[in-house]
């Protein structure tokens, strides 16, 4: 099965440079300080942020001049085709956790919260490719919902190469397993900095640049969508703002 047909259509009917449909909602839970729900195609992810709060557990982990960021990535047992025996703790989840922490640490202004801790919890409800990207995007939204100062959004996107020539953006699970390489990039869209870059399978070095550029363009497009969603959310809860005028 070709990843991209002669007419330029992919397996799910998208064109090479099209993203999947993204739907998101902020503030879905009352308990955590910030929460968000994000759907990217069929991949569904929930994010919850607690903090900043006093470091629980060992005091020695407190950093004197910056905040401790604690991430947890967990996949629900029903999220994949075959039942997943271990929702967290296996190698792939630990790696995802590390990469998530790296992406989130790149944008949080850590020096504002010395000796505190911020917890970010991610739960994948349905995994259909691009799990890491959906998690990073959901985490950004949850952090904004919690009112934690960020340098800017951190957005992630995947890209791949079909048939050795055509670059694709935002690949689904089927396209991942069918053998093409996949490159995941987490970037800060406004300043163009790259926070996390990770690649597997193989393709020739000469293609690296164009695939990365396509992934970065995908990040910028996702940023526009997320920004619009945040502004809508702020407007909906707009009745809150009279307080400023009465003060």
């Amino acid at each position: 099965m070709d990843l991209i047909s002669d007419q330029g259509l992919r397996v799910d009917g998208r064109r090479a440079g099209e993203l999947r449909r993204i739907r998101c909602k902020l503030g879905v839970y009352d308990q955590p300080d910030g929460s968000a729900y994000l759907e990217q195609g069929h991949t569904k992810v929930l994010a919850a942020v607690y903090g900043p709060h006093q470091i629980r557990g060992s005091r020695t982990k407190a950093l004197q001049d910056s905040v401790v960021i604690n991430c947890q990535y967990s996949m629900a047992t029903f999220s994949t085709g075959e039942r997943k025996k271990r929702p967290r703790g296996d190698r792939r989840s630990t790696e995802m956790t590390m990469l998530l922490k790296q992406a989130v640490s790149a944008v949080i202004k850590a020096e504002l919260y010395p000796r505190s801790q911020i917890d970010v919890f991610l739960e994948v409800l349905q995994a259909d490719g691009g799990n890491y990207c959906a998690c990073v995007n959901a985490a950004t939204l949850a952090l904004i919902d919690a009112g934690i100062p960020l340098r800017e959004y951190v957005v992630a996107c995947t890209a791949s190469l079909a048939n050795g020539k055509v670059p694709l953006v935002d690949i689904s699970h089927l396209e991942e397993t069918m053998g093409g390489p996949n490159l995941t990039v987490a970037a800060l869209p406004l300043s163009g900095q790259i926070a996390v870059m990770e690649m597997s399978q193989r393709f020739h070095i000469d293609h690296l640049e164009e695939v990365t550029q396509l992934a970065l363009q995908g990040c910028r497009d996702i940023y526009k969508i997320l920004d619009k969603a945040v502004k809508e959310h702020l407007l909906e809860t707009g009745d809150f703002f009279p307080q400023l005028e009465s003060n």
Binding site: V107, I144, L150, E152, Y153, K231, L235, F241
Partner: peptide, 8 residues
Amino acid sequence: PPQLFTPG
């Protein structure tokens, strides 16, 4: 609606 700002 007031003018809204987002991070960045």
